[in-house]
Amino acid sequence: MDNAKEFRNVIPDMVTLPQMFRNGGYSVVRIGKLYHYGVPKEIGTNGLDDPASWEHVWNPRGRDCDDEDKIFSILASPNAKTVLQRGSGNYGGTLSWLAAEGADEEQTDGKIAAQAQQFLRQKHEKPFFLAVGFYRPHTPYVSPKSYFELYPQDKVELPQEPPGNRETKPKAALSNTARAHYGMDEDMQRSAKQAYLASMSFMDAQFGLVLAELEKQGLDKNTIVIFISDHGYNLGEHGLWQKRSLYEDSARVPLIIRDPGMNSPGLPTGRTAELIDLYPTLADLCGLKPDRRIQGTSLKPVLENPDREWNRAAFTQVVFGNKKEAEAVGRSVRTERYRYTEWNEGRLGSELYDHAVDPREFQNLAQDASRANVVEELRALLGKGTN
Protein backbone atom coordinates (compact mmCIF):
# COMPACT_ATOMS: atom_id res chain seq x y z
CA MET A 1 0.00 0.00 0.00
CA ASP A 2 1.00 3.64 -0.42
CA ASN A 3 -0.46 6.89 0.82
CA ALA A 4 -2.55 7.41 -2.33
CA LYS A 5 -4.38 4.09 -1.98
CA GLU A 6 -7.66 3.94 -0.04
CA PHE A 7 -7.23 1.16 2.49
CA ARG A 8 -10.95 0.24 2.43
CA ASN A 9 -10.38 -1.13 -1.08
CA VAL A 10 -7.85 -3.54 0.43
CA ILE A 11 -9.28 -4.30 3.90
CA PRO A 12 -12.97 -3.29 3.69
CA ASP A 13 -13.94 -4.40 7.20
CA MET A 14 -10.95 -3.01 9.10
CA VAL A 15 -11.83 -1.42 12.44
CA THR A 16 -9.72 1.74 12.55
CA LEU A 17 -8.42 3.36 15.71
CA PRO A 18 -11.22 5.98 15.84
CA GLN A 19 -13.78 3.27 15.01
CA MET A 20 -12.59 1.32 18.06
CA PHE A 21 -13.38 4.34 20.21
CA ARG A 22 -16.69 4.89 18.45
CA ASN A 23 -17.63 1.26 19.11
CA GLY A 24 -16.65 1.80 22.74
CA GLY A 25 -19.16 4.60 23.23
CA TYR A 26 -16.90 7.60 22.56
CA SER A 27 -17.75 10.68 20.53
CA VAL A 28 -15.26 10.59 17.65
CA VAL A 29 -14.22 13.79 15.87
CA ARG A 30 -11.69 14.76 13.21
CA ILE A 31 -10.47 18.31 12.58
CA GLY A 32 -7.99 18.88 9.73
CA LYS A 33 -5.50 16.47 8.17
CA LEU A 34 -5.49 12.89 9.50
CA TYR A 35 -5.62 10.59 6.51
CA HIS A 36 -3.58 11.43 3.42
CA TYR A 37 -4.19 14.71 1.64
CA GLY A 38 -2.70 16.31 -1.44
CA VAL A 39 -1.27 19.50 0.07
CA PRO A 40 -2.11 22.26 -0.59
CA LYS A 41 -4.69 21.47 -3.30
CA GLU A 42 -6.94 19.32 -1.06
CA ILE A 43 -6.92 21.59 1.99
CA GLY A 44 -10.54 22.23 2.93
CA THR A 45 -11.72 18.86 1.57
CA ASN A 46 -11.98 15.35 2.98
CA GLY A 47 -8.87 14.23 1.06
CA LEU A 48 -8.52 10.45 1.30
CA ASP A 49 -10.48 10.40 4.53
CA ASP A 50 -12.33 7.36 5.88
CA PRO A 51 -15.94 8.45 6.57
CA ALA A 52 -16.69 5.32 8.60
CA SER A 53 -14.11 6.41 11.19
CA TRP A 54 -15.82 9.60 12.34
CA GLU A 55 -19.05 11.02 13.73
CA HIS A 56 -18.13 14.63 12.99
CA VAL A 57 -15.51 16.20 10.74
CA TRP A 58 -14.33 19.74 10.06
CA ASN A 59 -12.14 20.73 7.12
CA PRO A 60 -11.02 24.33 7.72
CA ARG A 61 -9.50 26.34 4.88
CA GLY A 62 -7.47 29.49 5.48
CA ARG A 63 -5.91 32.38 3.63
CA ASP A 64 -2.78 30.30 2.91
CA CYS A 65 -4.85 28.69 0.15
CA ASP A 66 -5.84 32.09 -1.27
CA ASP A 67 -2.23 33.35 -1.11
CA GLU A 68 -0.79 30.54 -3.24
CA ASP A 69 0.11 32.90 -6.09
CA LYS A 70 2.50 34.68 -3.68
CA ILE A 71 4.42 31.54 -2.68
CA PHE A 72 8.08 31.12 -3.68
CA SER A 73 9.26 27.72 -4.96
CA ILE A 74 12.66 26.49 -6.03
CA LEU A 75 13.03 25.69 -9.71
CA ALA A 76 15.68 22.98 -9.94
CA SER A 77 17.09 21.05 -12.88
CA PRO A 78 19.91 18.48 -13.12
CA ASN A 79 22.51 20.92 -14.46
CA ALA A 80 21.23 24.51 -14.48
CA LYS A 81 21.42 26.95 -11.59
CA THR A 82 18.57 26.57 -9.10
CA VAL A 83 16.43 29.70 -8.85
CA LEU A 84 13.30 30.87 -7.04
CA GLN A 85 10.00 31.19 -8.85
CA ARG A 86 6.85 32.85 -7.56
CA GLY A 87 3.36 31.46 -8.11
CA SER A 88 4.49 28.30 -9.90
CA GLY A 89 1.56 26.23 -8.64
CA ASN A 90 3.97 23.41 -7.81
CA TYR A 91 4.14 23.40 -4.02
CA GLY A 92 3.24 20.08 -2.42
CA GLY A 93 6.44 18.17 -3.20
CA THR A 94 8.73 21.14 -3.83
CA LEU A 95 10.58 23.38 -1.38
CA SER A 96 8.19 26.34 -1.23
CA TRP A 97 7.54 29.08 1.31
CA LEU A 98 5.85 32.34 2.16
CA ALA A 99 6.20 34.80 5.03
CA ALA A 100 2.51 35.61 5.11
CA GLU A 101 0.62 38.74 5.95
CA GLY A 102 -2.17 38.58 8.51
CA ALA A 103 -2.80 36.87 11.82
CA ASP A 104 -2.41 33.28 12.98
CA GLU A 105 -6.14 32.70 13.08
CA GLU A 106 -6.46 33.47 9.34
CA GLN A 107 -4.27 30.50 8.40
CA THR A 108 -5.70 27.00 7.98
CA ASP A 109 -3.87 25.71 11.06
CA GLY A 110 -5.12 28.68 13.06
CA LYS A 111 -8.67 27.78 12.06
CA ILE A 112 -8.04 24.14 13.00
CA ALA A 113 -6.88 25.20 16.46
CA ALA A 114 -9.90 27.47 16.87
CA GLN A 115 -12.28 24.65 15.92
CA ALA A 116 -10.59 22.29 18.37
CA GLN A 117 -10.92 24.92 21.14
CA GLN A 118 -14.60 25.33 20.33
CA PHE A 119 -15.14 21.58 20.55
CA LEU A 120 -13.40 21.41 23.93
CA ARG A 121 -15.65 24.18 25.29
CA GLN A 122 -18.79 22.17 24.55
CA LYS A 123 -20.60 20.12 27.14
CA HIS A 124 -19.55 16.49 26.68
CA GLU A 125 -22.08 13.84 27.61
CA LYS A 126 -19.76 11.07 26.40
CA PRO A 127 -15.99 10.58 26.51
CA PHE A 128 -14.39 11.78 23.31
CA PHE A 129 -11.64 10.89 20.85
CA LEU A 130 -10.51 14.12 19.21
CA ALA A 131 -8.05 13.92 16.30
CA VAL A 132 -6.50 17.28 15.39
CA GLY A 133 -4.36 17.27 12.25
CA PHE A 134 -2.28 20.36 11.48
CA TYR A 135 -0.90 20.88 7.97
CA ARG A 136 2.32 22.69 8.80
CA PRO A 137 5.22 22.24 8.54
CA HIS A 138 4.26 20.41 5.32
CA THR A 139 5.49 22.28 2.26
CA PRO A 140 4.61 24.97 1.28
CA TYR A 141 6.06 26.43 4.49
CA VAL A 142 3.53 29.20 5.01
CA SER A 143 3.28 31.05 8.30
CA PRO A 144 2.86 34.66 9.45
CA LYS A 145 5.92 36.87 9.16
CA SER A 146 6.39 37.03 12.93
CA TYR A 147 7.48 33.38 12.96
CA PHE A 148 10.12 34.00 10.29
CA GLU A 149 11.49 36.76 12.51
CA LEU A 150 12.21 34.16 15.21
CA TYR A 151 14.91 32.73 12.93
CA PRO A 152 17.02 35.49 11.31
CA GLN A 153 18.34 34.06 8.07
CA ASP A 154 21.97 34.89 8.83
CA LYS A 155 21.69 32.90 12.08
CA VAL A 156 20.25 29.75 10.51
CA GLU A 157 22.80 26.95 10.80
CA LEU A 158 23.34 24.43 8.01
CA PRO A 159 24.51 20.86 8.66
CA GLN A 160 28.28 20.51 8.88
CA GLU A 161 29.45 17.21 7.43
CA PRO A 162 32.79 15.60 6.56
CA PRO A 163 34.02 16.04 2.98
CA GLY A 164 32.88 13.29 0.65
CA ASN A 165 30.04 12.16 2.95
CA ARG A 166 27.59 11.55 0.08
CA GLU A 167 30.14 9.48 -1.78
CA THR A 168 30.09 6.94 1.07
CA LYS A 169 26.34 6.33 0.62
CA PRO A 170 24.66 3.91 -1.81
CA LYS A 171 23.34 5.87 -4.78
CA ALA A 172 19.83 4.56 -4.12
CA ALA A 173 19.90 6.04 -0.61
CA LEU A 174 20.17 9.55 -2.09
CA SER A 175 17.33 9.13 -4.59
CA ASN A 176 14.97 11.73 -3.15
CA THR A 177 17.58 14.49 -3.66
CA ALA A 178 19.78 13.04 -6.41
CA ARG A 179 21.48 16.42 -6.89
CA ALA A 180 22.82 17.51 -3.51
CA HIS A 181 20.63 20.22 -1.98
CA TYR A 182 18.70 20.40 -5.29
CA GLY A 183 21.59 22.59 -6.45
CA MET A 184 20.72 25.37 -3.98
CA ASP A 185 23.48 27.68 -2.81
CA GLU A 186 23.90 28.22 0.93
CA ASP A 187 21.82 31.41 1.02
CA MET A 188 18.87 29.61 -0.56
CA GLN A 189 19.32 26.68 1.80
CA ARG A 190 19.13 29.07 4.75
CA SER A 191 15.96 30.63 3.33
CA ALA A 192 14.34 27.20 2.99
CA LYS A 193 15.35 26.12 6.47
CA GLN A 194 14.25 29.43 7.99
CA ALA A 195 10.82 28.93 6.41
CA TYR A 196 10.57 25.36 7.70
CA LEU A 197 11.51 26.39 11.25
CA ALA A 198 9.02 29.25 11.09
CA SER A 199 6.15 27.01 10.00
CA MET A 200 7.10 24.47 12.67
CA SER A 201 6.96 27.14 15.39
CA PHE A 202 3.66 28.41 13.99
CA MET A 203 2.13 24.93 14.20
CA ASP A 204 3.56 24.48 17.70
CA ALA A 205 1.84 27.69 18.81
CA GLN A 206 -1.50 26.45 17.47
CA PHE A 207 -1.12 23.14 19.29
CA GLY A 208 -0.33 25.13 22.42
CA LEU A 209 -3.70 26.87 22.14
CA VAL A 210 -5.47 23.50 22.06
CA LEU A 211 -3.56 22.27 25.12
CA ALA A 212 -4.30 25.50 26.98
CA GLU A 213 -8.02 25.12 26.27
CA LEU A 214 -7.92 21.49 27.43
CA GLU A 215 -6.47 22.67 30.75
CA LYS A 216 -8.81 25.64 31.00
CA GLN A 217 -11.82 23.33 30.75
CA GLY A 218 -10.38 20.97 33.37
CA LEU A 219 -10.24 18.16 30.82
CA ASP A 220 -6.49 17.63 31.16
CA LYS A 221 -7.08 15.68 34.37
CA ASN A 222 -8.63 12.71 32.55
CA THR A 223 -7.51 13.07 28.93
CA ILE A 224 -4.65 11.22 27.24
CA VAL A 225 -2.78 13.48 24.82
CA ILE A 226 -0.53 12.14 22.06
CA PHE A 227 1.64 14.27 19.81
CA ILE A 228 3.05 12.62 16.67
CA SER A 229 4.12 13.28 13.11
CA ASP A 230 3.85 10.86 10.21
CA HIS A 231 7.53 11.20 9.28
CA GLY A 232 10.70 13.09 10.06
CA TYR A 233 12.42 15.55 7.71
CA ASN A 234 15.75 16.21 6.06
CA LEU A 235 16.98 19.80 6.10
CA GLY A 236 20.22 19.35 4.20
CA GLU A 237 21.67 16.36 6.08
CA HIS A 238 23.64 14.23 3.58
CA GLY A 239 22.56 16.79 0.95
CA LEU A 240 18.97 15.55 1.32
CA TRP A 241 15.80 17.58 1.76
CA GLN A 242 12.22 16.70 2.69
CA LYS A 243 11.07 13.16 3.56
CA ARG A 244 11.47 9.70 2.03
CA SER A 245 14.98 8.82 3.10
CA LEU A 246 16.02 6.06 5.47
CA TYR A 247 18.36 8.21 7.52
CA GLU A 248 17.52 9.16 11.09
CA ASP A 249 16.37 12.71 10.37
CA SER A 250 13.68 11.47 8.00
CA ALA A 251 12.71 8.11 9.52
CA ARG A 252 12.45 9.22 13.15
CA VAL A 253 9.32 10.98 14.35
CA PRO A 254 8.31 12.90 17.47
CA LEU A 255 6.28 10.77 19.88
CA ILE A 256 4.98 12.28 23.11
CA ILE A 257 2.36 10.48 25.20
CA ARG A 258 0.86 12.27 28.17
CA ASP A 259 -1.35 10.08 30.37
CA PRO A 260 -2.57 11.73 33.59
CA GLY A 261 -2.78 8.27 35.17
CA MET A 262 0.93 7.49 34.84
CA ASN A 263 3.15 7.47 37.93
CA SER A 264 6.26 8.94 36.28
CA PRO A 265 5.18 11.81 34.01
CA GLY A 266 7.59 13.88 31.96
CA LEU A 267 10.32 11.28 31.61
CA PRO A 268 12.02 10.46 28.31
CA THR A 269 12.92 6.93 27.28
CA GLY A 270 15.52 5.38 25.02
CA ARG A 271 13.23 2.48 24.14
CA THR A 272 12.36 1.99 20.47
CA ALA A 273 8.76 2.39 19.27
CA GLU A 274 6.81 2.47 16.01
CA LEU A 275 3.74 4.45 14.99
CA ILE A 276 1.83 1.17 14.64
CA ASP A 277 2.22 0.82 18.42
CA LEU A 278 -0.24 3.67 19.02
CA TYR A 279 -3.37 1.62 18.27
CA PRO A 280 -2.63 -1.19 20.75
CA THR A 281 -1.31 1.33 23.28
CA LEU A 282 -4.52 3.36 23.33
CA ALA A 283 -6.62 0.20 23.39
CA ASP A 284 -4.64 -0.96 26.42
CA LEU A 285 -4.79 2.37 28.26
CA CYS A 286 -8.53 2.80 27.66
CA GLY A 287 -9.63 -0.80 28.12
CA LEU A 288 -10.99 -1.17 24.58
CA LYS A 289 -10.86 -4.09 22.14
CA PRO A 290 -8.77 -3.43 18.99
CA ASP A 291 -9.17 -5.10 15.62
CA ARG A 292 -7.58 -8.55 15.84
CA ARG A 293 -5.44 -7.87 12.73
CA ILE A 294 -3.54 -4.88 14.01
CA GLN A 295 0.23 -4.91 14.29
CA GLY A 296 2.37 -3.24 16.90
CA THR A 297 2.75 -3.56 20.66
CA SER A 298 1.26 -1.66 23.57
CA LEU A 299 3.71 0.85 25.01
CA LYS A 300 1.94 0.89 28.38
CA PRO A 301 4.77 -1.04 30.10
CA VAL A 302 7.27 1.62 28.93
CA LEU A 303 4.98 4.42 30.09
CA GLU A 304 4.87 2.79 33.52
CA ASN A 305 8.66 2.30 33.59
CA PRO A 306 10.62 4.19 30.92
CA ASP A 307 13.83 2.33 31.79
CA ARG A 308 12.45 -1.20 31.62
CA GLU A 309 13.98 -3.77 29.28
CA TRP A 310 12.40 -3.52 25.85
CA ASN A 311 13.81 -5.68 23.10
CA ARG A 312 11.91 -4.30 20.11
CA ALA A 313 12.97 -2.72 16.83
CA ALA A 314 11.45 -0.20 14.41
CA PHE A 315 11.13 -0.77 10.66
CA THR A 316 10.97 1.74 7.81
CA GLN A 317 10.61 1.19 4.06
CA VAL A 318 10.79 3.44 1.02
CA VAL A 319 10.38 2.76 -2.71
CA PHE A 320 11.84 4.83 -5.53
CA GLY A 321 11.10 4.39 -9.23
CA ASN A 322 7.98 3.26 -11.06
CA LYS A 323 6.80 0.80 -13.71
CA LYS A 324 8.93 2.52 -16.35
CA GLU A 325 12.05 2.69 -14.19
CA ALA A 326 13.96 0.15 -12.16
CA GLU A 327 12.71 0.20 -8.59
CA ALA A 328 14.97 0.81 -5.63
CA VAL A 329 13.42 -0.63 -2.48
CA GLY A 330 15.04 0.40 0.78
CA ARG A 331 14.25 -1.40 4.03
CA SER A 332 15.71 -0.27 7.34
CA VAL A 333 15.65 -1.60 10.89
CA ARG A 334 16.48 0.56 13.91
CA THR A 335 17.42 -0.86 17.29
CA GLU A 336 18.43 1.23 20.27
CA ARG A 337 22.04 1.18 19.11
CA TYR A 338 22.12 0.48 15.37
CA ARG A 339 20.45 1.34 12.09
CA TYR A 340 20.84 -1.27 9.33
CA THR A 341 19.53 -0.66 5.81
CA GLU A 342 19.43 -2.74 2.64
CA TRP A 343 18.67 -1.54 -0.87
CA ASN A 344 17.11 -4.25 -3.04
CA GLU A 345 18.16 -6.84 -0.46
CA GLY A 346 21.72 -5.50 -0.53
CA ARG A 347 22.24 -5.68 -4.29
CA LEU A 348 22.20 -1.87 -4.49
CA GLY A 349 24.10 -1.45 -1.26
CA SER A 350 23.74 -1.81 2.47
CA GLU A 351 24.40 0.50 5.42
CA LEU A 352 25.15 0.07 9.12
CA TYR A 353 25.45 2.96 11.56
CA ASP A 354 26.37 2.76 15.23
CA HIS A 355 24.33 5.43 16.99
CA ALA A 356 26.34 5.07 20.17
CA VAL A 357 29.25 6.86 18.47
CA ASP A 358 27.83 8.09 15.14
CA PRO A 359 24.35 9.61 15.68
CA ARG A 360 24.53 11.59 12.43
CA GLU A 361 25.22 8.46 10.37
CA PHE A 362 28.47 9.39 8.66
CA GLN A 363 30.43 6.15 9.00
CA ASN A 364 28.96 3.21 7.12
CA LEU A 365 30.14 0.04 8.89
CA ALA A 366 28.31 -2.49 6.71
CA GLN A 367 31.57 -3.76 5.20
CA ASP A 368 33.56 -3.57 8.43
CA ALA A 369 34.70 -7.12 9.21
CA SER A 370 34.60 -6.41 12.94
CA ARG A 371 30.84 -5.78 12.66
CA ALA A 372 30.02 -8.86 10.59
CA ASN A 373 28.11 -10.47 13.45
CA VAL A 374 26.04 -7.31 13.93
CA VAL A 375 25.21 -7.20 10.22
CA GLU A 376 24.20 -10.86 10.25
CA GLU A 377 21.95 -10.37 13.26
CA LEU A 378 20.26 -7.25 11.88
CA ARG A 379 19.85 -8.76 8.41
CA ALA A 380 17.94 -11.63 10.02
CA LEU A 381 15.84 -9.18 12.02
CA LEU A 382 15.10 -7.17 8.89
CA GLY A 383 14.06 -10.33 7.07
CA LYS A 384 11.65 -11.22 9.86
CA GLY A 385 9.98 -7.83 9.56
CA THR A 386 7.68 -5.84 11.78
CA ASN A 387 7.29 -7.05 15.34
Rank of each mutant, 00 (worst) to 15 (best):
V132D: 03
S53Y: 14
V57L: 06
A116P: 10
N90P: 01
S88Q: 08
G62W: 02
L95V: 09
I112M: 05
D104Q: 12
T108W: 00
Y147I: 00
E101G: 04
N59Q: 08
K145I: 11
G62F: 00
W97I: 04
S77G: 12
V83K: 12
S96N: 00
V83Y: 02
H138R: 11
L75Q: 03
V83T: 09
E149C: 06
K70P: 00
F128L: 13
K70W: 13
R61F: 02
A99P: 06
H138P: 04
S73M: 10
E149V: 03
R136V: 10
L150V: 08
A100I: 02
E101Q: 11
I112W: 09
A99I: 12
H124T: 04
P144I: 09
Y147E: 07
F134Q: 09
A76K: 05
G62C: 02
F134G: 05
F119A: 14
F148M: 08
A99H: 02
S88C: 03
W58V: 10
K123T: 15
H124G: 01
P60L: 05
L75N: 02
S88A: 07
Y141D: 07
L84E: 07
D69E: 08
P127Q: 15
R121K: 12
K123S: 15
K70F: 09
F119M: 13
G92S: 07
D67T: 03
R136H: 01
L95R: 00
A114Y: 11
V57F: 08
R121E: 15
R61L: 04
V57G: 09
A131D: 02
F72W: 05
S96Q: 01
G102D: 09
K111P: 03
Y135V: 09
P137W: 05
R63Y: 02
G133V: 15
L98M: 09
F72S: 15
V142P: 06
K145L: 13
F119C: 12
R86G: 00
A52E: 14
S73G: 08
P78M: 14
K126V: 06
Q118D: 14
F128C: 11
E105K: 09
W58I: 11
A99V: 12
Y151T: 03
C65M: 10
A113H: 07
F119S: 15
K81W: 05
I112V: 10
R121G: 06
S88E: 05
D69H: 13
L150W: 09
Q118W: 12
L150T: 05
Q107Y: 05
Y91R: 01
A52W: 13
P60E: 10
G62M: 01
G102C: 03
H56Q: 12
F129Y: 11
P78I: 15
Q118R: 14
K123A: 14
K81C: 01
L98E: 03
P144L: 08
N79Q: 13
N90E: 11
S53I: 03
H124Q: 08
